[in-house]
Structure formats: C-alpha cells, structure tokens
Design a protein around this nucleic acid. Sequence first.
RNA 1: GGAGAGAUGGCAGAGUGGUCGAUUGCGGCGGUCUUGAAAACCGUUGUACCGAGAGGUACCGGGGGUUCGAAUCCCUCUCUCUCCGCCA
Length: 425
Amino acid sequence: MLNLKFIQDNPELVIEKLAVKRFDARAIVEKVIELYQRRNEVQNEAETQKAEMNRISREIGQLMKAGNMEEVNLAKEQTVRLKEQIKTFEGEFDLIDEELAQLQVLLPNLPASLVPPGKGAEDNQIVATGGTMPILPEGAKPHWELASQYDLIDFELGVKITGAGFPVYKGFGARIQRALINFFLDQAREHGYLEVQPPYLVNEASGFGTGQLPDKEGQMYHDSTDNLYLIPTAEVPVTNIFRDVIVEGKDLPIKTTAYSACFRREAGSYGKDVRGLNRLHQFDKVEIVQVAHPDKSYDSLNDMVAYVQTLVEKLGLPYRILRLCGGDMSFTSALTYDFEVWSAAQERWLEVSSVSNFESFQATRLKLRFREEGRAKPMIAHTLNGSALALPRIVAAILENYQTPEGIVVPKVLVPYLGGCEIIR
RNA sequence: GGAGAGAUGGCAGAGUGGUCGAUUGCGGCGGUCUUGAAAACCGUUGUACCGAGAGGUACCGGGGGUUCGAAUCCCUCUCUCUCCGCCA
C-alpha cells in the first residue's frame, strides 16, 4: 500500500500515475489527505492531554508518598475531565484511523515509468522473443489428447475425487512434474536462491501482507474453522517470512525460492481457457522472491527476467516476454514482465511466468525494512517475485511441441531427471 | 482433546501498582591501552507516530477492563513448554 505521507506530499503524481492503471484515484486521494490532516490534529490534541495526565499522575505519586491526602484528592478531581477529553479524542482518532486504513488499501501500486499505457492484453509490449516454432507432424494433437493417449494425466479421475481443475498425474505424467520441480529448484539454487519449504496454509495477516486480502478474498480457498487460507502461490508464505522484519542492508538482495502446490478458485473462468492444463485449481509452481534495496530493485527485476529466460530456453520452448501495460497489471505491481510459451497444437501463447517488482508496496504492508550501514533509521525495502516456473502450461507446451509419431521427446535438460528416459512412448 | 506452567528489548534473564522504555549479563558499535589482536576498562546500543525544534505520545505476545497511575491486578484470544491421550 502507499504511504500516507507520500500521498499527502504527492497527490497529483499519485492520481496521474494511477490513471495509467486506469484507476481514478482523485476522490480517494482527496479524502485520504483530509482524513490524514484531521487525524494528526486529533493525535496532537490527545497527546497533549495525555502528557498533562501523565504529569498529574506523577504528582499524585509524590503527594501520596508525602502523605498529603487532601492535595491528592484535589489532583484526582483534575483528572476526571482530562480523562473524558482524552477518551473523546482517542475515539475520534481510532475512527479516522480505521477509515484511513480502509481507503489506503483501495489504492493500487503506482506503475513504474516504463509501464506502457493501455487497456488490456492487446496493449502489452513484446520486449523479447526466442526459441523456434516447432513444425508438428501430421495429425498433431492438443496436450489433453496426448495426456490421455500416453496415460499421463487423468482429468476425469480428478473430477471424481475432487472436481474440475484437480487432475491426477500418472506414471511419466507424475514423474515429469517431479522432474520439472527438481530442475527448477536446482537451477534457482545455482543462481543463489535459498530454497525453503513453506506452509501451504496461511493466516489472515499473511494474506494481508502480500496484498491478497482484503480485496482478492474470493480467489483463495478458505478454511473457516481455523480461519486459514490455502496459498494461491508460494509468494504469500515466502514473502511473509520477512513480515515485521528489519534486515541488514549489506545482506541485500535476499534471494529465496520455494516449490509449492498452488490453489486458486478461479471463479468466473470458462471455455478454452480452462481446457486441459490451461487453468487449474491446483497446480505446481516454483517461485523466486527477492528482497532488494530500493536503489537496486530494478537490477533485481532484470536479473530475475534474465534468469527465467534461461529456463524456457533450456527447455527449448518458443517464448516471448511481455511488458504489461497499465490496464493489464496487477493491483500490487509497479512493473511486470510476463513470459508466454507457444503451445503449438493449440496454436496459442500460454502464460507461464509473471515477474514483478512491487517496490515498497508490499514491504509497507509487511513492515519489511532494512538498516543501511552508517544510517540510524531503518528504511522500507523493495520486494519482487516471479514464477520460475509454473508447471502445467510448461507441461502442455512440452507435450504438444515435442510430440512425434514415435512419442513425446523429453527435453534434454530433463532427461537426467527422468532416469535417462529420452522419449515417452 | 485433557491438566498445568509460561510469553519482557538481538539473545539470556530481573522486575508483582508510582519518576520503568524498563536492573544486570552476553552480543553489537565507538573509544582508551597495544606494533596489531585478545583481555581489561570507559561509553553507547529498540521501534513507530506527532512536532520546524525543544520535546511529546505509544509499545513488556494480541485485544479489552480496573485505577489518578499497569510490564505488574482482572477478563479474553493466540502462541510456547511439560505431563496425559491420540497419531503420519
């Protein structure tokens, strides 16, 4: 979320920047400034009174010691009115503070200056492409048919056990999941990321910290008995490692990676978008997260994009990198690059990674700060994350792009992870 | 799930109603001494908000209450530990 003081000092900048995200912030910004000023006034009043109250209380202590009960009672009378006034001011303060907090979370993050204007997906900028489009054999099939032909994934069985969007992977289908997870984790580790295994359920504070709550509540599965949320991405538990933490400036950037299953309700999705592996309620993903110095966070972003690029290249998948336009960006992001791979039989691009710099937006919620050497006050850090990578669409692209009349050819980098198997027949 | 104990600053650990943001030790930082280091000694060492500043306010797991005054008393929630039960 945006810092209140920043909003107060830069109202026009906030409004202008958020217009790029097609968000009309004027009314909220004006209200925030008004409330913020009022809150400070009330705070000043309340604190002046409290100071007086503290003074009298100390005095009473002295008088009691001296045994001067008459003056004690006199002093006590003084506090009655003060107490009431303090209560009134504090009540108003709490009210305003709550209202401010509610407004504050309505404002999206400001887009970085690189973010192109635009409404939706069609306005995203293609900043890089790579790989070569495969020439598929006669009678090439989409991945859901291949999955069933080679008995790799059973969608119907998943429907029986749970429901749509919860496939059962079998045999090489299951092994290729495991292979990809290990491949991605090994790669991340080699690039300096610390591997962690986070919880798959998180509490409300964590959901708030990364920005899923309060507004994206409907996208997460929720256990109401214990008030816990199933994670939609490892970003949530991993980033929340750093909630309420002050790190050393010299340790930045802090690079963390985690594999997790991800759970998304995906309310409102339908049609070809949810066919086969295109969109699932449960899927596997390896996530990379960085905590960075504010001056260096765009270096981190570039570093992460370059890293993800090596992954899709090693898998031999044709890909393109998009810089998302204002209208297509997430609420929390300042700059996002999406990776898409070509799904040759479906003849469409599939998003397999989204790499974002959140600047101080998450860190402000998280109270994630760092201490720079030689500087007294801790400062808010920057956070970034990216998929590296999400499995299902990678699997879809591999199945489709690597199909031959003899079977599915295994990408070279995965062969050692599949016990030397070079083709799935 | 049942019974009991507990939660204090980076860590350990005092403090059971009055000047306590908090004794002390360790650790960290700065200094003296030393060719350098260690040891010893001296000093310093939380965060947030308000304020131009002086300074003020809040925070002793979270929330609420009693009181002129709460780390300290009461209620409640969460978590940790010990024992019992159950168990991958």
